[in-house]
Amino acid sequence: MPEYIAKDEKSRNPLLVDMRSLNIRYRIPVSRIEKFYESLDRGIIMGTKCPVCGSRFFPPQAWCSECGFSGDMEFYPLDTHGHLLTFTRIFAKPKSFSGFGDYTVGIAHLDRENINVLAWIDDAIQKPEVGMEISIKVEKRKEDNATVYFISKP
């Protein structure tokens, strides 16, 4: 057999092991929401508000999907007080998160914004419960040193 043919460990069926491997890293334009990242770096989480109809958006967006306004959306700091709607702890992790320990993801409702935020739940919340009070905080994540927002204690 040529060197690129290998037997599957379980079934012993022959497989051609592809010699062309691909490593993809996307470059995603964020110029229209640049203010969000500038503020995040200062520990503030911004949403956007439509100056015409008042609709609020998180994640922030540079147009209004409700009334169709296309122009300068207003960036404003979110009132991050809210409560936890649901959560899960991820045990079977994807390949690009394989270096992380198990992590807990939740969705929180921000009471005064009527907006939901999906994020990791901070380790400080050891036993998450549906309905518990939370706030959203910006932290440097220790696993990858990334500046991200967490669902955290109020």
């Binding site: 959560f87 991820i90 994807p94 993801v105």
Partner: peptide
């Protein structure tokens, strides 16, 4: 939603449905 669910939070498909299950 790649940028707001995956890039930073590593959601998996079981994870998304687990959010339904918990609620």
């Amino acid at each position: 939603d790649f940028l707001w669910e995956y890039e930073f939070f590593g959601l998996t498909f079981p994870g998304y449905y687990a959010l339904y299950a918990t609620a």
